[in-house]
Computed example of a mutant assay.
Amino acid sequence: MGKIKKSKPKSKSTNINQGIFLNKQVGQHVLKNPLILQTIVDKAALKSTDIVLEVGPGTGNLTIKLLEQCKKVVACELDTRLSAELIKRVQGTPYQNKLEIIHGNVLKIDLPYFDVCVANLPYQISSPFIFKLLLHRPIFKYAVLMFQKEFAQRLTAKPGDKLYCRLSVNTQILARIDHLMKVGKNNFKPPPKVESSVVRIQPKNPAPTINFQEWDGLLRIAFNRKNKTLSAIFKQSGILSLIEKNYGVHCSFNNIPVPKDFNMKDFVIKLLEDNDFAASRARTMEINDFLGLLQLFNNNGIHFG
Rank of each mutant, 00 (worst) to 15 (best):
F140M: 05
L66A: 11
E150M: 04
Q153I: 00
L133P: 02
A175V: 01
A45C: 13
K132L: 13
H103M: 06
Y123V: 00
L167V: 14
Q69K: 14
C76K: 08
T156G: 04
E150P: 10
D115R: 04
V52P: 04
Y142C: 04
Y95G: 04
Y95R: 08
K72N: 12
K162P: 05
L46A: 05
V144G: 00
L53C: 13
M146I: 01
N105T: 02
I101C: 11
L99D: 09
L134R: 09
N120L: 03
R81C: 10
I177V: 03
A152R: 02
D50R: 10
A152D: 03
K47V: 09
K88G: 08
A45V: 13
K47M: 13
P94E: 11
K88H: 14
L78Q: 06
Q96Y: 12
P122R: 13
S83P: 09
L121C: 02
N120V: 09
G60K: 11
L134H: 04
G160N: 12
R137C: 07
P57T: 06
A84R: 12
F147C: 00
V118N: 06
I101Q: 13
D110F: 13
D79V: 01
T80G: 00
V118H: 07
L62D: 03
L111M: 10
P159V: 14
P122N: 10
M146F: 00
K98H: 13
L66K: 09
S48M: 12
L167G: 13
I109K: 09
Q148R: 03
V41P: 02
P122F: 00
Q96P: 01
L145K: 02
V90Q: 08
T93H: 04
T59Y: 06
K47W: 08
L121V: 01
G92W: 08
K108R: 11
S168I: 09
E100Q: 15
A157P: 11
G104M: 05
E150S: 08
V106M: 13
F131P: 01
E150W: 01
G56A: 05
L111K: 10
K158C: 06
I130D: 07
E54M: 11
K108F: 09
P128C: 14
C165F: 07
T80I: 15
K108I: 01
M146S: 00
L78D: 05
C165Y: 06
N170G: 14
N61D: 10
H103P: 01
Y123W: 05
V74N: 14
K108C: 08
K108G: 12
H136K: 10
Q148V: 02
A143D: 02
E85T: 15
N120T: 01
L99Y: 07
I51N: 12
K43Y: 00
Q69L: 10
V90F: 10
Y164W: 08
Q38R: 11
L86D: 08
G56Q: 04
L133V: 07
P122T: 10
E68F: 05
C117P: 01
D42H: 13
S48I: 15
P138M: 09
F114N: 07
I109F: 11
L86W: 03
V73R: 11
